[in-house]
């Protein structure tokens, strides 16, 4: 589905990614772990075409998407849920969803407003409210729902559990399970090992812009020194 090979990315003079390689299979949920500033978000943004200075290969469904503008990548079926949520505060919930709406595609499940409001009941109640009036948890749901309105085949979820209450985190875990059930592929970046273990099939750990672990959670649990070294647990 997605193949990233030897990805380098920089902002100005600062080299953020140093040869990141990872892959995501069909209908797989994979976690990218690492602490703040390790390069998780930059990896996500690079895949999404939001980092300009980058080299390496990014292949999505056999086609190179390196250097493509982000709207083209989105139209190819990649959904992106940013870390800071970035909902449109001056737009209503419905308008936020409208911005994300794209035509149905044959090779991906279709998400209707009704289906999304079922999955996120809070949003349904607040559909006429402005984005900025929502709580942090509601905003997190809105940003995911907005991306799903684009009927993606693959979703990049950047730190979905960051800064929200445990109840919502549990809901988030359910949502990710639902995405997998619907047949989507999901790449999650996370700092929270517990949450990542709960929702994903396998994991990468990124440190200082390179992948330093690639394997299962089982192996990670048997070797706690790895997570101690690289993760903030």
């Amino acid at each position: 589905m997605l193949e990233v090979a030897n990805l380098n990315a920089r902002y100005g003079r600062a080299q953020i990614l140093n040869g990141v390689s990872l892959s995501l299979g069909q209908n797989e949920v994979v976690a990218v772990l690492g602490r703040n500033g390790a390069g998780k978000s930059t990896t996500m943004k690079s895949i999404m075409g939001m980092v300009r200075q980058k080299t390496g290969q990014i292949t999505y469904e056999g086609q190179s998407i390196l250097g493509k503008p982000s709207h083209a990548i989105c139209r190819a079926g990649v959904g992106y849920v940013p870390e800071e949520r970035r909902i449109f505060g001056e737009l209503t919930v419905e308008e936020n969803l409208e911005v994300g709406r794209r035509d149905k595609r044959d090779d991906a499940p279709e998400w209707t407003l009704e289906h999304l409001f079922e999955l996120f009941p809070n949003l349904s109640e607040r559909r006429k409210n402005l984005g900025k009036q929502l709580s942090g948890g509601e905003q997190q749901m809105l940003t995911i729902a907005r991306t799903l309105m684009g009927n993606p085949k693959m979703v990049l979820l950047d730190e979905p559990s960051e800064g929200i209450a445990p109840v919502i985190v549990e809901q988030m875990a359910n949502v990710i399970a639902e995405l997998k059930r619907e047949g989507l592929s999901v790449l999650i970046s996370e700092q929270n090992l517990h949450f990542a273990r709960l929702v994903s099939d396998r994991a990468y750990i990124i440190e200082k812009g390179s992948v330093c672990y690639d394997g299962t959670f089982g192996h990670l649990d048997q070797n706690p020194e790895i997570s101690n070294k690289y993760l903030a647990v």
Binding site: G163, P166, V167, N192, H194, F195
Partner: peptide
């Protein structure tokens, strides 16, 4: 417990 890191957020 499971969401150890997130416990704090519950009271936020």
């Amino acid at each position: 417990t499971l969401f150890e890191d997130k416990k704090e957020a519950a009271n936020a």
